[in-house]
């Protein structure tokens, strides 16, 4: 407990009110992120995984205060960002940066690469003149961009190069925490590995802490030290990467594993042994009763329909929100 956490999230909620059709309908509440808690030490990487619409991006945006949290605490180095005023928050902005999903939308089309990377430095009056120029060119080299491209516009670059520009911008202020919101999902498969490797190198070099949001387990596998699985705005399982890959306890996580394509189909398990996820993610406005996952869960029992499970430490360091988590033996058999 005495250990210093870089980031500690406590019972974070982000609700949206959705206006009903017409003035007579009551506005409904969409619980995009509900009661999420986790801790992150410096140098760690938390991978957040879930299907689209599960609230993982909303969680990332709320932590960095692009969205106002509904309730809960965001403790960054012990300071609560959740209730901070804009003016005060500005002091902490440089410590937390974000890498965005869509490299085609994350760069201002009317700014040159140099100005894009220089913007954080100019905003916080870190450097100016020749020092600024040196630093920007250095950042470009660090992320693997040719410095001769500094005066070009973003549209002259490929997706991977654009993502490198975005990474350079995020690095400019030497942040402690970087939230990566699906940074590779918009890129070609061949480029994805390059960007992931770059992010890992940078992590070592600058001692960064990452929150890495992705929708599949394979892309977070190599970069994460911890993995959290989200379903309909809640965390259903969180543990170390090795533990999760060795013995997933939540049926949903198991379903995500089954969804990973195998390079050689002849190694695939017979159809009847696979726990392929059935159906779609339910409407978050009207989530199912009890455990949100029960309509899709092959192990659902009566209790799951009525009582909501809470995230509990079922094994040391292994948090699961499930009434009947898959026992270690059972998952061994499956593995």
């Amino acid at each position: 407990m005495a250990e210093e956490y870089l980031l500690e999230i406590r019972h974070l909620d982000k609700f949206f009110t959705v206006k009903g059709g017409g003035p007579w309908k009551k506005p409904e509440i969409l619980r995009a992120v509900s009661d999420v808690s986790f801790c992150l030490k410096e140098g760690e990487t938390l991978g957040i995984v879930g299907e689209s619409g599960c609230g993982k991006s909303t969680l990332g945006n709320t932590i960095i205060r692009l969205l106002e949290p509904t309730s809960g605490e965001i403790l960054f180095q012990g300071k609560d960002l959740a209730k901070m005023k804009k003016r005060e928050l500005a002091k902490y902005r440089p410590d937390m940066q974000m890498i965005f999903q869509d490299p085609y939308s994350s760069l201002n089309p009317r700014m040159r690469v140099f100005d894009i990377i220089a913007e954080p430095l100019r905003t916080h009056h870190v450097l100016a003149g020749e020092d600024l120029r040196k630093r920007v060119l250095e950042l470009m080299t660090v992320v693997g961009l040719d410095v001769s491209y500094a005066s070009r516009y973003p549209h002259e670059f490929s997706g991977g190069q654009r993502q490198r520009i975005g990474i350079a911008r995020a690095l400019a202020l030497r942040p402690k925490l970087i939230i990566c919101d699906e940074p590779v999902s918009a890129l070609d498969v061949s480029i994805q590995a390059q960007i992931l490797n770059l992010l890992r190198q940078l992590q070592e070099k600058f001692h960064l802490t990452y929150i890495f949001i992705a929708h599949g387990l394979p892309s977070v596998r190599h970069i994460s030290s911890k993995i959290a699985v989200m379903y309909l705005g809640k965390m259903v399982e969180m543990t170390s990467r090795d533990q999760l890959f060795a013995a997933p306890m939540h049926p949903y996580t198991l379903g995500l594993f089954e969804a990973i394509p195998i390079p050689d189909p002849s190694f695939r398990k017979p159809e009847e042994d696979r726990e392929i996820l059935q159906g779609d993610i339910p409407n978050a406005l009207h989530p199912p009763s009890g455990c949100y996952f029960h309509p899709r869960c092959p192990y659902a029992r009566e209790e799951c329909r009525t009582r909501e499970p809470v995230l509990e430490e079922k094994q040391p360091g292994h948090f699961v929100a499930c009434h009947y988590p898959i026992s270690i033996k059972e998952s061994d058999k499956k593995a």
Binding site: N61, L89, R93, M96, F100, L107, N108, P120, T123, R169
Partner: peptide, 12 residues
């Protein structure tokens, strides 16, 4: 657009 969000997270 994400570049405006990026500017917000920078603190611009």
């Amino acid at each position: 657009r994400e570049f405006v969000k990026a500017a917000v997270t920078i603190g611009t």
